[in-house]
Design a protein around this nucleic acid. Structure first.
Lengths: 141, 141
DNA sequence: CCATTTAATTTGAATATCAAACTATCTAAT
DNA sequence: ATTAGATAGTTTGATATTCAAATTAAATGG
């Protein structure tokens, strides 16, 4: 475990990184008629595949009541579909429609462009190392 | 510049990291009677010091109209104060009050705890390297 | 069966958000 | 100096988002 000063510096660098990413994403989605929370749902469903409401709500950090309304809108916009879950008639699975997947892929491309800009000062080796760190960190939290 | 596959892997790792951080923060602030956007404003003002409305709106990724209402609430809650800016009578500077700084510091401590958990599998050298990468990335975007 | 828990929805109220219109002030060009 | 834009922030009116709490339907474990 690193000493406290380094941890604090990393903490602040992470917060700065997170704030900028939020700001970028907020600006990007405003021009697409989708809210930040909605695009997060699309991102998670795109990366993960079909999910139950409960599980998606946890991943988004919102209540299931909020998620019901959010998914209603995405369904009305043709981006998401609901389907009865196997083996538990209370549960609903939500998944991207073809249009939803298209939006996911377009949004993913925007992220990729941004990522490329971020990485512009790192060489191949450094990118590899950075990826390994990110993987370890994601696994730890 | 790294090859495309690595960039895509990093892109997805960044998105996953970002989604989890968002989810964590959303859950954390719900218990404190502050919205996500409000705590972002507090985080930015805490890290940066006083800012004009325009500049803060850009950093948050919201319109100035939205920010006016957001800051109204933070002022009513005693967390932020408004002050005429030097040299331009149209401009307003907003800054944290003592109570606002206290909230910032408490929230920062929560982030630090999370950061420590994330870093648990990295040794001192790796933390140093990771910090250097983050700094380069933040500088590039 | 029955009590309890769980998954999702609905409800009602408070907030948050946007675009567009507006006010006040600054800047530049004549 | 005057005036025509440009800029900073607020207000307005309409929608959208969010929560906690109540509700419905289904599962689980005595």
């Amino acid at each position: 475990m690193a000493d406290n000063t380094i941890q604090q510096e990393i903490n602040h660098a992470i917060i700065e990184f997170y704030e900028r990413l939020s700001s970028w994403e907020q600006s990007v989605v405003r021009d697409q008629g989708v809210s930040l929370a909605q695009i997060h749902a699309v991102e998670i469903l795109g990366a993960h595949g079909a999910l139950r409401m409960k599980s998606l709500a946890e991943k988004l950090g919102v209540t299931t009541g909020t998620l019901t309304v959010l998914i209603d809108r995405l369904v009305n916009n043709g981006l998401v579909s609901r389907q009865a879950a196997e083996g538990d008639r209370r549960a609903i699975e939500v998944m991207l429609t073809d249009a939803g997947r298209k939006m996911f892929e377009e949004h993913d491309q925007l992220h990729l462009q941004l990522t490329k800009e971020m990485l512009v000062t790192l060489d191949d080796d450094e990118c590899q190392q950075f990826l390994q760190f990110l993987k370890k960190i994601n696994a730890a939290f």
